[in-house]
Nucleic acid binder design. Sequence first.
RNA 1: GGUGCCAUAGCCAAGCGGUAAGGCGAAGGUCUGCAAAACCUUUAUUCCCCGGUUCAAAUCCGGGUGGCACCUCCA
Length: 465
Amino acid sequence: MQIFNSMTRKKEELKPIQPGKVGIYACGPTVYNFFHIGNARPFIVFDVLRRYLEHRGYEVTFVQNFTDIDDKMIKRAKEDGATVQDVADRFIREYFVDAQALGIRPATVHPRATEHIPQIIAIIETLLKKGLAYESAGDVYYRVKAFPEYGCLCGQNLEDLASGARVSVDEQKEDPLDFALWKAQKPGEPAWDSPWGPGRPGWHIECSAMSTTYLGDTFDIHCGGKDLLFPHHENEIAQTSGATGKPYVHYWMHNGFINIDNEKMSKSKGNFFTVRDIAKQYDLEAVRMFMLSAHYRSPVNFSRDMIEQAKSSLERLYIAREQLQFLLNAAGDGEPSEAEAAFLMECDKARVRFYEAMDDDMNTADALGALFELVREVHKLPQKGGCKKAIAQGLETLTSLAGVLGLLGKQEDAVSPEVEKMVAERAEARKNKDWKRSDELGDGITALGYFLSVTRGGQKVRKGV
RNA sequence: GGUGCCAUAGCCAAGCGGUAAGGCGAAGGUCUGCAAAACCUUUAUUCCCCGGUUCAAAUCCGGGUGGCACCUCCA
């Protein structure tokens, strides 16, 4: 598999440190609120990365952290009159609610920053010992100038960074570019004991501590949003490599942003959507579909219209699956017909094309194209006298490939007995050419969120996406 | 000022040297009591503009134009 490495800015063949195993660290949310649609993108696309690698036989250790201590956490706790930990516990729970609805699997490990204070302190101590950090009035800062490779990820040298810096000058720091590893406690803030007095960790150091705790000093893939490239990931490299003297990460992956009406989403612009809000109007699987319809590195524009489009195309996938299930139920034993043999070839072609797309830096848009070409083949299948073996194989191809994208997650909906009854009554009415009654029942069924279809195999009902 | 990214049909979006995937929408058709749904067909002689390289360019190079992002503890 080729992966675009932000460090080298090239596609590179993925060569895991240990054959057959891949370690991935993904920057997770700061749990001070419900997460928003922009947060959702990395969660979804890197969930797909993990699913795909597992699908291809890798054993994946996927680590995604929760940042449960920082300024925003403290602010939120004050507003709510709760402790920082209460806020964290609450929004971690809420994270899993939205994540599940988006088809995002729980990570192998979900470490919390506050549960790794000893590891954080250990790294800072090493950095101090090596002269890569200094203490200043209870704070500890990273000495950026002492790490020659600083800027290797973002491709900027120190001078350029300094000239463009909008960092406020802080007399505590030796250099404006230096960043906090440890912050001395301020009144009313939560704090942990440390060799430098009570305080809390800086943001960047958390990820260094958590990633290396679970994945080792050097691991395969680190991912996150493009905006984290600098300074967050740059700082992680400085901290971790600085402390260990080893390379930190082999492949850096960064997803592009989500814009709202071609503008950056931000609270100040008021174009800010939480996933929870969107869930009130849309099935979140459609949101996932939307995210995967473009390449993960390009920016995408979010709008109601885009979700509607994604919803319709998702529907098409479900209909194909349903058609295969319908054919499977009617199929018998025996050997595949000529048409089915051709269909099986198309299944193989779709799978190959799907893999090629995914191997090319996770081109989900192209992979989706392969899936839809398979969908068309499904509908070419004869309606009668199918062969169980062939249909089942087609169904397996469709669901397993869609499953790599985390799509088609919903099981076939059991139609409620109430609706079953209405369908039966409607069939009876139609037999008697009682069109009025038939229409009434039809409208009733539709109103309950079902689609009725009368042409193939008699009456069929299905639940809308 | 520094560093990058992008421009493909009404909309979304692949393709990145060999003659334009796919989805949504729209139009026509099949089916149907009429619809809806479903299925089928059609829907870019052309890829922002101008030059260049090449037998061959949406794809490479140069120059424009128009968008966007990072350099702020925003994914």
